[in-house]
């Protein structure tokens, strides 16, 4: 009897072993090691690591650059995510309507996702150049305003958020479109017969039904975007000044250009705490929304 209950465990372990080993060696172990490292002065040019307690963190929290970087990281992540969901929903609604061209639209949605982020960053960096960029020129022709997109603080911040939204909103639309298609047609028809117009039918039927999906992609995108930095690296390099710098890129620079491993490890732990807080809040909210829907 005991052997029988133990065997499936062994078989299962055998099957998950390769993935488990990979994840343990390349994610779990280095994460704990990184947490430990953040309590050390660690720099390969200065000899062995020295335990210094929370000094790395203390120094970080006193630095105004770090504060600015953290603030922009949060702004970038939150603003991008909100815009991506709003615009993604608009695209999904457009493609869910009875337009003939919607199948073309569905294929289009995947293009910004399939273009390498690095390419997107560089295309927008050049496209927004105020003398020879096509996007900047088009903007000036349409609105009459001339803006140095990537040379001033706030225009640069807006540009990078906008570019990020260009890349991700269609991807969000793919998922929201699939969610909208699960809304039963009969209920929408019944609402129409009862005299509800399209807006009313959307806000009282479709929106509540897809809200758990919206919330979970929201959390997913917050978590994923807070640490991603390939767009910042390829588009602005964190500039002008420090105005579009994000924690992930700063941690990368600290580690692999300044070789200040301890400081970088502490910074990535701060980043991780943002992820953890977002994840926990997201899960609590999701539970509440789901219980209301069911």
């Amino acid at each position: 009897m005991r052997r029988l209950s133990r065997q499936p465990f062994l078989v299962a372990m055998l099957l998950i072993a390769p993935a488990l080993l990979l994840r343990s060696v390349t994610a779990a172990w280095p994460f704990f090691n990184n947490a430990w490292l953040s309590l050390h002065r660690s720099n390969p040019t200065l000899g062995p690591d020295v335990y210094i307690g929370f000094d790395n963190y203390r120094r970080l929290f006193r630095s105004t650059t770090f504060q600015e970087t953290t603030e922009f990281t949060i702004l970038y992540t939150v603003a991008s995510t909100i815009l991506e969901i709003a615009i993604g929903l608009a695209i999904a609604l457009l493609l869910n309507s009875a337009l003939r061209a919607r199948s073309i639209g569905r294929a289009m949605n995947l293009i910004p996702w399939a273009v390498p982020v690095v390419v997107t960053g560089i295309a927008f960096r050049f496209g927004l150049d105020s003398s020879f960029g096509l996007f900047s020129d088009l903007f000036t022709r349409v609105t009459g305003f001339q803006v140095d997109w990537l040379l001033d603080r706030w225009p640069a911040r807006m540009s990078i958020i906008f570019t990020n939204v260009w890349r991700n909103a269609p991807f969000v639309a793919v998922i929201l479109l699939a969610a909208l298609q699960t809304v039963p047609e009969e209920i929408l028809e019944a609402a129409k017969i009862d005299g509800a117009n399209a807006v009313k039918a959307f806000t009282s039927i479709s929106l509540p039904l897809i809200s758990p999906v919206m919330l979970s992609i929201g959390v997913f995108f917050l978590i994923w975007q807070v640490s991603s930095f390939d767009l910042v690296l390829s588009m602005t390099g964190g500039g002008p000044g420090n105005s579009t710098q994000v924690l992930g890129y700063q941690a990368y620079l600290d580690a692999f250009q300044s070789l200040n491993f301890g400081r970088s490890a502490a910074m990535s732990m701060v980043l991780l705490s943002l992820v953890a807080v977002t994840g926990l809040l997201g899960m609590m909210l999701l539970r509440r929304v789901e219980s209301r829907v069911n």
Partner: peptide
């Protein structure tokens, strides 16, 4: 975040 694993 993968940045929190790359130094080790």
């Amino acid at each position: 975040p993968s940045i929190a694993t790359v130094i080790p």
